[in-house]
């Protein structure tokens, strides 16, 4: 069972311990626990979705460090289009479209022209940062964000209901559907099997008549669509505005979470929620005015957590074997 899902015993122990802490806190103080968990969800969801971008790309063999730039660009276009057209849905659509176009550029560079994938991602990041800073205009607003609402019935479930299904916007709920859908796609469908094969040994897929280029292009662009979706999500729903460099390194954090989740959508989701919780907890500690610990240390908490987690799991992880390598048909 553990082997089948590639879960290490210590991960299981970590999960059980956290669950125990959660239950304990829930019983001790339901309200505060609920609000911390819910805000952990809010912090974690964009990271989880950004990690999906990484998973889509790397599972098919393309390392994408341009997630940061993709989100930045799509958040930018999404926000200004929404502001100009007074229509959030239009904004979100444009954000997704921007994500697809950005990743198309990335895909052309890495898959067709076989450029170094790290350099291609860096280009996207620099381009996005420069372009959005240059074109940035202060004072734009978007029409009222979508209402925050509770999902009936599901929101009533004791213990988990409040954390997952209340007090969120529609995009957040959409993410809850999207992540398991990507998992199903990756492990249960023909496309997923081919994607994983292309990411592990493109030669085996090629000789089985699967087009490596096509599989990679589509996966990277689908990943880009999710990246655009996240950018739009942050600027249009979560924060409700565009600010310079709003991504603040979250694209890279997402990659770390993807590794922690072992390139598995559900694993990365769990890792992202854990990271979100650490962030929510640090915020909560600040609110409560824990004064005997300097503020800076508390703010550091989620990042220290990421470093520790990565340091512990690094070396044991096994990325898709062909990630980072352009595919060339064997010659001679």
């Amino acid at each position: 069972m553990l082997k089948r899902f590639n879960i290490k015993p210590w991960q299981l122990i970590l999960g059980v311990v956290l669950l125990g802490v959660w239950i304990y806190c829930y019983i001790a103080n339901t309200d505060i626990t609920n609000s911390v968990v819910a805000s952990g969800m809010r912090f974690g969801m964009p990271l989880a979705l950004a990690a999906m971008v990484g998973i889509m790309c790397e599972r098919s063999g393309v390392i994408n460090i341009g997630i940061e730039g993709t989100m930045l660009l799509s958040g930018f276009t999404g926000f200004y289009i929404a502001s100009w057209s007074k229509n959030i849905v239009a904004g979100l659509m444009i954000a997704i479209l921007t994500g697809i176009l950005t990743s198309f550029v990335h895909a052309m560079m890495t898959i067709q022209w076989k450029m170094d994938q790290i350099i291609a991602g860096t280009i996207i990041n620099i381009l996005a940062s420069g372009l959005t800073s240059f074109l940035y205009k202060q004072g734009s607003t978007i029409p009222n964000s979508w209402p925050i609402f509770d999902i009936p019935i599901l929101g009533q479930i004791p213990f988990i209901g409040h954390a997952f299904f209340t007090q969120q916007g529609p995009i957040q709920y959409l993410g809850l559907i999207l992540i398991p859908a990507i998992w199903v796609m990756m492990y249960k469908t023909r496309w997923g099997l081919r994607t994983r094969a292309v990411g592990e040994n493109p030669g085996s897929a090629d000789t089985a008549g699967v087009s490596v280029i096509k599989v990679r292009m589509i996966n990277v662009m689908f990943g880009g669509a999710i990246g655009g979706f996240v950018g739009g999500f942050i600027c249009l729903e979560l924060v409700g505005s565009f600010s310079k460099e709003f991504t603040a390194g979250s694209g890279f954090t997402a990659l770390a979470l993807m590794i922690f989740g072992r390139w598995n959508p559900m694993g990365a989701f769990a890792a992202a929620i854990l990271f979100g919780l650490a962030q929510a907890l640090s915020t909560q500690l600040q609110i409560f005015g824990v004064t005997n610990i300097p503020n800076q240390f508390i703010t550091m908490l989620p990042y220290v957590f990421t470093i520790v987690v990565l340091a512990v799991s690094a070396g044991k992880v096994r990325p898709p074997a062909a990630a980072g390598k352009s595919y060339e048909k064997e010659q001679a």
């Binding site: 099997l193 081919r194 994983r196 094969a197 592990e200 040994n201 085996s204 897929a205 089985a208 008549g209 699967v210 096994r318 074997a321």
Partner: peptide
Amino acid sequence: VPVMSVVENIILG
């Protein structure tokens, strides 16, 4: 594909 099962390798494509 080394990390996949025999079945998965045979049916691929």
